[in-house]
């Protein structure tokens, strides 16, 4: 391994200037949990490393309108943030499941997203939370919708030298909930076999939400959904995103359309699961078989929506009852 310089700029402008000075051989490094691995594997031999860890203007969580998260915010900071847990739950779900605590203490969301691995855990939540990527470049800042940011495996819409400053998400109504389900073989230190995120905004025509108590029990899921149907719980808005089952993290747009404006019922759930499964393009790999991934998209899409709905109905309950599915 050849030696290299290690720069620690304190501002975005300084970082970009260093990158320009490196003649294209520099590599930005944030938490380093991916870059350092690539260097050790000799898959990457940078001319210099330009650290974004000390750039203060990348380290912010701003909740004044919607949610704005700096790219250098660590997964652990996101996972433990009260507002994110409450209002952008899919994101804290995902951030809290990345790697291990040691990894989450240093690994940043900016790094996770810019690597653009199909398995990036935070990608699906950002997709369902309508995030835009704030990018700083020589000619100033621009914002790109997250769905347009991922171009393919390890490819993102970043120009030479550009830096992702952060991610901006709109404010959602009170009746909005979201969830991310990471399907893994182990319960920690694992990459997802697939990941599913969902966001729903619901409308309840009646005054009282009777299905609340059903959700608190270990009642059969069919019965819970029956209650939803009886009480005419309408899904006003929906987003569904899938990870690992396509070359890039993707939205299941047909499934979203099929869900929007409908009264939630078991039949609808089955339909949505099937549609989402038909939209993905999973592959066989050592980490999972394609047929299984597709089938899990079907199953977990239903569960992610249900969990998102539950979070609207029971905003203060953080514990999801153990159910026999």
């Amino acid at each position: 391994m050849g030696s290299f310089e290690y720069y620690k700029p304190e501002s975005v402008a300084e970082a970009m200037a260093l990158m320009e000075g490196s003649g294209g051989k520099g590599v930005y490094i944030s938490g380093g949990t991916d870059v350092m691995v690539l260097i050790r594997q000799r898959k990457l031999s940078p001319g210099c490393l330009i650290s974004l860890r000390n750039v203060r203007d990348l380290d912010y969580v701003d909740t004044s309108s919607g949610l704005a998260v700096g790219s250098a915010v660590t997964h652990n900071a996101i996972a433990k943030n009260d507002l994110i847990q409450k209002r952008y739950t899919a994101l804290s779900d995902a951030a809290s499941k990345v790697g291990s605590l040691q990894i989450r203490n240093v690994a940043t969301m900016g790094g996770n997203i810019c690597n653009a691995a199909p398995s990036a855990d935070t990608a699906c939540p950002l997709l369902v939370l309508d995030a835009s990527v704030v990018i700083a470049g020589k000619s100033g800042e621009r914002a790109v919708p997250i769905d347009e940011f991922f171009l393919g495996p390890n490819k993102v819409a970043l120009g030479p030298g550009e830096i992702v400053k952060g991610f901006a998400m709109p404010a959602f109504s009170e009746k909005t909930g979201s969830a991310y389900i990471k399907h893994t073989r182990r319960q920690a230190m694992d990459l997802p076999m697939l990941g599913v995120a969902a966001r729903v905004t619901i409308r309840i025509d009646g005054n009282e939400i009777g299905c609340r108590d059903a959700l608190c029990t270990i009642d059969n899921i069919s019965n819970v959904l029956k209650r939803f149907e009886d009480e005419k719980l309408v899904c006003e808005d929906a987003r569904i995103a899938l990870g690992v089952v396509a070359p890039r993290p993707m939205r299941a747009k047909k499934a979203e359309t099929a869900l929007k404006g409908k009264v939630i019922s078991e039949g609808l759930f089955e339909e949505i699961g099937e549609i989402a499964a038909s939209e993905c393009q999973p592959r066989d790999s050592i980490r999972g078989e394609a047929w299984y991934r597709r089938d899990m998209v079907r199953v977990l899409t239903k569960r992610a929506i249900l969990r998102a709905v539950d979070r609207v109905i029971r905003p203060d309950d953080t514990i999801w009852p153990e159910r026999l599915w």
Partner: peptide, 26 residues
């Protein structure tokens, strides 16, 4: 869960991430 995936003589999961030995969560 544990298994070494030897595919036609090549080891495909020779690392802790892919070998899946149990963690404290398991």
């Amino acid at each position: 869960g544990e298994r070494m995936i030897w595919d036609r003589g090549y080891l495909k999961n020779g690392n802790f991430l892919d070998y899946k030995m149990p963690t404290v969560r398991d």
